[in-house]
Design a protein around this nucleic acid. Structure first.
Length: 265
DNA sequence: AGTACCACCTGACGGC
DNA sequence: TGCCGTCAGGTGGTAC
């Protein structure tokens, strides 16, 4: 799940449910997911601590603690956060849990174990060391976007997904952005005029905002106009023109599009 | 510079 | 029912 919109919604849930509550106990059920320190050390450092604030950069979520460091959450392909009050609400694959003193728990769930949790002294430094580009939603105005995209030879989709160019767009959102633009997934950057690139920027922002709103509302209808996200399946019909949605492979990643709206390539 | 491909890891799902 | 191949939205490294 987790691309920028998903992570942003998780950040908001974290703000609503888990701030300023001392953790009675931090439970590491799978130390494989904890990077940079032993699982025991991680739990010990955070015992009794509270989350003070949160930040997001691209697909990374940071939570400031009064223990000093920030907790970094990265979700891989199958990770998410869930706050629950009673044990029946516990998700299926919780790897790290915060049990709050006043009740309730926060679970970092990660079925495929491709995510990670770690302590970092400073989010800005982490972003710099990771060489992440500016956040696709908060950190890129039109000119920055044009600057980042101009002079590149590759595909638009690939560039949108490269986290060192801009952070937050993944495979699924890149497909959605191309769908909204009615561009084929293999569209090359050199074929786009500056005016079209500016449109890409606007549509990217609107698509990310729309996806956040849709996820917040928990229903697809919140998205303005037809969108591809619920139709990522070969053979389903395009919500815009009724054409047949197809899947092609780009660098080993599944890419879904409507040949009728977006061209055959 | 850009692309393809593999690896990481585990589960869900469809076909036979 | 069970086995098997395929696919999954993440990143990172290698080879061309």
């Amino acid at each position: 799940m987790p691309e920028l919109p998903d992570v942003e919604v998780m950040r908001r849930r974290l703000e609503e449910t888990s701030m300023d509550r001392p953790a009675e106990r931090v439970e590491v059920r799978d130390g494989d997911l904890v990077e940079g320190s032993g699982p025991g050390e991680f739990a010990d450092r955070l015992r009794g601590s509270r989350f003070l604030s949160s930040r997001r950069h691209g697909k990374y979520l940071f939570a400031e603690t009064d223990a000093g460091p920030w907790v970094l959450f990265h979700f891989g392909m199958s990770g998410f956060l869930r706050h629950f009050e009673e044990s029946p609400g516990e998700p299926e694959y919780p790897k790290v849990l915060w049990h709050f003193r006043e009740g309730g728990s926060l679970a970092f769930d990660c079925r495929r174990k491709l995510g990670q949790v770690r302590l970092v002294p400073d989010p800005d430094r982490f972003v710099e060391e990771k060489r992440l580009g500016p956040d696709a939603l908060e950190g890129m105005d039109r000119n920055a976007f044009l600057g980042a995209m101009s002079g590149r030879r590759g595909m638009l989709k690939t560039a949108l997904m490269r986290q060192e160019i801009l952070a937050g767009v993944g495979n699924e959102m890149s497909d959605e952005i191309l769908y909204q633009l009615r561009l084929h997934p293999r569209t090359g950057l050199p074929s786009l005029e500056e005016e079209q690139l500016a449109e890409v920027h606007g549509v990217m922002r609107a698509t990310l905002e729309g996806a956040i709103a849709a996820r917040e509302a928990g229903d697809a209808g919140a998205f303005p106009g037809p969108y591809l996200l619920p139709h990522r399946e070969e053979g389903t019909s395009c919500p815009r023109c009724g054409g047949e949605v197809r899947r092609i492979e780009i660098s080993g990643r599944g890419s879904y599009f409507c040949p009728d709206c977006q061209g055959e390539g």
